[in-house]
Nucleic acid binder design. Sequence first.
DNA 1: TTCCTTGCAAATCGTTTGCATAATG
DNA 2: CATTATGCAAACGATTTGCAAGGAA
Lengths: 128, 128
Amino acid sequence: MNLKHSKQRDSIKEFLATRKDHPTADVVYMNVRQSFPNISLGTVYRNLTLLADIGEIARLRVGDGVDHFDYDTNPHYHFVCSECGDVTDLNTPVTNQIIKDVQETFEGEIKGQVTYFYGRCSNCIPKN
Amino acid sequence: MNLKHSKQRDSIKEFLATRKDHPTADVVYMNVRQSFPNISLGTVYRNLTLLADIGEIARLRVGDGVDHFDYDTNPHYHFVCSECGDVTDLNTPVTNQIIKDVQETFEGEIKGQVTYFYGRCSNCIPKN
DNA sequence: TTCCTTGCAAATCGTTTGCATAATG
DNA sequence: CATTATGCAAACGATTTGCAAGGAA
């Protein structure tokens, strides 16, 4: 894979690096547009896909029908608020034990695992 | 929610009950059409959504961009083959311990958890 | 007769892609 | 110069929805 430098791609990575939440392509687009008013959604999608493919960022499919992107590629759990849709990091360490357990009774080859937790985030729990 | 009987809905449930894999809406449509040649994709989607909402079936979002549906609503893990796309059940028991662990360090309210495993199924592993 | 359900088609949403042009190495 | 990246718009695939007609209680 032959890469060439691009200011747009840099800007997308930079933006992602500043966010601890997990923006969608559209959010990335809205924000990067402040530095590159002419950037197109297509370019944003192309670069997000490329960066995810080469492992510089992670694509998160949390089941809400929209892809989220994460600058942090270290394995960690995510929480998805069913009410506001926010995706946040959890700091419980990820274990591989479950993969070993499952592998024991499975004839295929398990390469990985995706887990996300859902519920109500603290902001969405009514305080009285 | 006020439900009325419908042959189409029955047929969709019946079909799902016979399958241990996890058909997509389109697959359900193709099959139910054998009994109801005039059924529309919209009706299939509407009923699958309805049945999932009232908890009679489960909607699986395994990250391949298409919703799968499962007649078995008991909590169990799923494996997704990255090569052929097949979704199969795993028989490793689901534990709630991980939820308790995560809840310890999380201010929100965790209601559930979704895990799927991916890799190569036995059919897709080359035999030499 | 009420109102839920259907079939049909059009609409929506997120994402991808073809193409001509611009930028990079 | 060779090739990758861009902007734009059109295309796409999965799913949803508006509407008038049909069916269940």
